[in-house]
Each structure stands twice: as C-alpha cells, then as structure tokens.
Design a protein around this nucleic acid. Structure first.
Length: 523
RNA sequence: CGGGGCGUAGCUCAGCCUGGCUAGAGCGCUUGGUUUGGGACCAAGAGGUCGCAUGUUCGAAUCAUGUCGCCCCGACCA
C-alpha cells in the first residue's frame, strides 16, 4: 500500500509541469530562441508537411499541398503567357545520358538514386530481393534534373531553324540523394518545375534566360511577397554544365540567404553533348543554344521563413488556400441556426468577390471545437483573415475579424467587410512584402575590408548580436577567397544585376574588382 | 563516410545505473456530463509482444553480444 502511494506520488512529482494554458506564443521555441527548431514547429503546426517513412522524403499534407497548387497555378499561367507549353518526360534516365556532359556528371553523380533491377523475387527468408535474372543491361537513374533526357528528345525534334524556338516546361518530381534533409528546404525527393528551351541564336537564348529570371523575381515579389535580388552566380556556384547561372536570392528572418529560383544559360554545351543541331537559313548545320530554369517546393520553406512569426505561418493572400476563414460562435441551437445562416450568407457574398483575378476563397469551420482552439489552428496555418461571427454580430449586422498580419481586432458592417475584402487582402499582401523588404534592408551592409567582413559573419546568430546578413563586397574569385569563405561558412550568393559597375578592390586579395557581389550564409 | 546519441501507447517521454509480481505519465483519441466571444473542466474508456535476434538468469524494458532503423554534429547540395 505504502509502496503504491509512493510510486504514484513520485511519478507525479517527476512529471514535467504541464504546458502553460496560455502561452505567449503559439509556437515554441520562438524564432529568437532557436530558429531552426522554430521552423520545424511551424511546418508541423501549420499542417504543411511531415516526415515520411522514407528517409529524407516528406509527406506534403493538404494545407501545404494547396499552397504548392497555388504556386503551380500562378507560375504556370506566367509560363504560358511567355509562350511556353507543358510536357512530361520520363522519371528514369539511362545512366549513359548523364555521362555525356562532363561537368554535369560531376555535379550530380554523387546524389543519384540508381535502378538496377526490374523484378523482385522471394529471398527464401520470407522477404524479397531484386531478382538476379532481372538485372538491367544499363542502370537507370532517377532524374535529379532532366537536361539530358529532354536534350536527347529535343535532338530529334529539331532539324530546321523553323523548328525553333522550342519552349517547354514540365512539372515533376526529382530525386537528389541528400544526406542532411530539412522539410521543404532540402529533401531527397522534391516537386518542381523545370523549363527547357532551345534557340537558334545565342542572343535569343540569353534573352530567354533573363526573361525567366524576371518571371521568377516577379512571382517571388508580387505573389509570394518575398523580396529577392536577381544576380549572376559565380563560376564556383554555377549549375554543372551551364555557361552562366542566374538566381533570385532572398534573405530569411535569421539572416541566411535562400536561393529561391535559378535560370541557366547553357550555351551550346548540352547541344554539343546531345547533338541538338539544325540547319540555319543558309543551309549550314549548327548547334542550338539551350536554357533551363526551375523553382521547387523549396519556395514553401522560403515562405515560412520570410513571413512566419512566433504564432506560426503567415500566408500572402495570393497563395493562401483560404483567404478568409469564418468561425461561427454560438451557445445553443437557436444561436447556432442564426449564426450559421449568417455565416453561410457571408460565405456566398465573399465568394462572389474576387481578389488578384481569382474568386475570394472562403471556408467556414463548423467543426465542433472550442472557439479558442479553432481560432489558433487557423492562426498557425496563416490564414490572412479570420471572421469570428457570434450572435452579437448577427444582431448588429457586423463582422468581427482579425488580420493575421497584425494583432488588431477589427469590426466592420457586413456589407462593407464584403465589398472591402479585396482591398483588405491587397493591403495584407502589401504589408507582408513591405515588412520583409524592411527586414532585408536592416540586415544588409556594404563592407570594404576583410576584418569587418570577418567580424560581421563571425558574430553569433544567437543572443542580441544579430549576426550576419547580406554583405555587398568587392571580390575576385580565388582560392584564397574560397578558403576564407569556407572557414566562415559564408558563400557568394550572386553578383546583383541591378547594380552598376563600381570599380574597387577585392577585399580578399586586393585585386581590382569591377563590381560588388553579395555574401551571406545560406541554406 | 568519420564523431556522438536514441529506439517503451498515435505524439513527447519517464522507468534501465542497482533485473522481480498486472510497464507508467503528459498530450492526443473515444464516450458521457458541465462549460461557451475563446487555445476549457470533470468522469469513464480504448490503446504497448518495451526496434529485432541471440545469449546470461529461476526471472530481462532493465545486463551482454549482434543486427536493423532513426536523429544530431562534420565533408556535399535547389
């Protein structure tokens, strides 16, 4: 008996105190406390994705996938508007295809999944094994990117200059066998789009490369509300096999940079490797010029780290699966009938409005949950506007609502709320961008000497030092620079296109440098 | 592939050092009740071959050996 009491008491005493009933923030730890952990918690709390049974691969949950669908739909429209068509190419690529472009092999060989058999058989121990008799003549690799298989196809499609340009995009999954993975930011399998184009002239291909970079920047800033810097990658950071690589770079709230999209001018490298050639107007047989460009589900990670706060995700309205969530509040059946009638009508009125060229997306959450919990679920998921409708609002014909981008509680007559909805959403979209831009400005510096550079990046990210950020510096690529950067875990992000030439001296070697590059720690 | 850690309920973990009778907690879930402009409370309940294998022992979640898997830190990456 005594023994029982003791053990019961003990287990109670040793149990950690229950979570406080009203924590300050919906997500813990906060961004300031532990940013990487905060990121993981937001991805989970916002129902975006979870780890799967397959190492390094994620399950994208409905809310997260709905965001991806919105990204896909809007980007796809932009691709179509610039003359591209969608097609689909195989998941498997013959290994020999990868071998054709030397730099390309080197870049991807280390992280390829390889298919070697086409049949399983019992292993005699109750399990299965690849059947030795079913070994493939030539192994297939699971595409890490599709330049080679698409290039081989294009080689057949192109004979005359009249066949050009070819402007193709594919939405697909790719596999890169990454060792260290993080949901959305780096997973072994991810979803993306890859554009592949073929042109008759270098100028045209270069123009295409820049056009798509502009499309990405436009999308990032105007749809994702994520400010980006367009720039060219240095030789060291270039896509394997490309002549030049351009990217859009965003700065996250922890002051680390995220490459959010890339556009490559491939020159004639892949055309040569894959024999993409055509007869020009003069009857001459010449190699074509190609480009490729892509963005991935990584953008969702960027979204989280650009706009999220300590209460969870904060979605830019243009990508939010729901613009408005209506939360009915009632105590009894009488109120329920009235409130729900009001909510249903409100839903219809809102859905008849449009925002950014699409109908306003509304959900009513009728689940039988406590109001508080229900509200917080939607806060964490980042819905731009929550309308909380109770009997008082029904009686007064008003809508009580909260904006995710501010903690303000607002109230408006129903009709006004409805007619203003597009404006409110536009305002939220704008405020998210402005805030992110402000944060980037605050974290951006110009540095002209190595000592300051080292100090800037050596400072810890924790405490109040607010270490790191984006540094604009003069540089010339060199082994000396690489070594210093490596020791600081800093990378050259790009050489911004917007900046004018400004002669100076490389802060690493003192050599003359024509313009500045941006440096940052990166994802 | 180097260095460290962990596998116990759906989730987070306690118990293991010092083996012992019916293996625990919190959260979540189900049911009933009380609440209701707010992340509620009370009660009852479902849920575990303690990663797997072998060994030591009268007896293994606990000890030993092996094995598989996962996580963290390094070298590489959208």
């Amino acid at each position: 008996m005594h023994f029982f009491w003791l053990s019961t008491l003990d287990s109670k005493l040793l149990t950690p105190p229950p979570m406080s009933k009203q924590p300050q923030t919906a997500i813990s730890p906060t961004r300031a406390e532990n940013f990487p952990e905060w990121y993981q918690q937001v991805v989970r709390a916002a129902d975006l994705a979870e780890n799967s049974d397959v190492r390094g691969c994620m399950v994208i949950k409905p809310w997260g996938y709905a965001i991806w669908e919105n990204i896909e739909r809007r980007l796809d429209a932009m691709f179509k508007a610039t003359g591209h068509e969608n097609a689909y190419f195989p998941l498997f690529i013959p290994m020999s295809f990868l071998e054709k472009e030397a730099e390309h092999v080197e870049g991807f060989a280390k992280e390829c999944a390889v298919v070697t058999h086409h049949r399983l058989e019992p292993d005699g121990k109750g399990g299965l094994q690849p059947a030795p008799s079913a070994k493939l003549e030539e192994p297939l690799i699971v595409r890490p990117t599709s330049e080679t298989i698409i290039g081989a196809t294009f080689a057949r499609w192109v004979q005359s200059y009249r066949d050009l340009p070819i402007l193709i995009n594919q939405w697909a999954n790719v596999v890169r066998w990454e060792l260290r993975t993080r949901l959305f930011l780096r997973t072994a399998e991810f979803l993306w789009q890859e554009g592949h184009t073929v042109h008759a002239t270098e100028a045209e291909a270069r123009e295409e490369t820049m056009r798509m970079l502009d499309v990405y920047a436009d999308f990032a800033e105007n749809t994702m509300a994520m400010p980006v810097i367009k720039g060219e990658k240095t030789a060291g950071e270039r896509f394997p096999g490309a002549v030049s690589t351009f990217s859009i770079e965003a700065l996250m709230q922890d002051r680390k940079a995220l490459q959010a999209g890339t556009s490559h001018f491939l020159g004639q490298n892949f055309a040569r490797a894959q024999n993409i050639k055509f007869q020009d107007e003069n009857g001459q047989e010449v190699f074509a010029w190609t480009t490729s460009w892509g963005v991935s589900t990584r953008l969702i990670g960027g979204l989280v780290m650009t706009h999220g706060d300590d209460d969870g995700l904060m979605l830019p309205p243009k990508l939010a699966p729901a613009h408005v969530v209506i939360l009915p509040i009632y105590r009894n059946d009488d109120e329920k009938t009235q409130v729900l009638a009001f909510c249903d009508a409100l839903e219809k009125e809102l859905a008849a409005q449009s925002f950014a060229g699409e109908p306003v997306r509304v959900r009513i959450d009728k689940r039988d949950l406590r109001g508080g919990e229900k509200k917080w679920q939607w806060v964490k998921r980042g819905v731009p506007i929550r309308a909380e409708i109770g009997p008082r609002d029904v009686a007064s014909g008003k809508v009580f609502y909260g904006r995710r981008d501010s903690s303000a509680k607002l109230e408006a007559p129903r009709a006004e709320f409805v007619t203003n909805i597009a404006n409110t959403l536009a305002d939220i979209q704008q405020s998210l961008f402005a805030r992110a831009l402000e944060a980037r400005k605050a974290a951006t510096v110009q540095i002209n000497d190595l000592a300051t550079f080292k100090e800037f990046f050596a400072s810890k990210d924790d405490e109040d030092s607010e270490g790191g950020g984006l540094a604009y510096c003069h540089f010339i690529e060199s082994p000396a620079m690489d070594e210093i950067l490596k020791s600081l875990k800093v990378t050259v992000r790009c050489v911004p296109l917007a900046d004018a030439d400004e002669p100076g001296k490389c802060i690493f070697t003192g050599q003359p440098s024509p313009r500045r590059g941006i440096f940052a720690k990166a994802y």
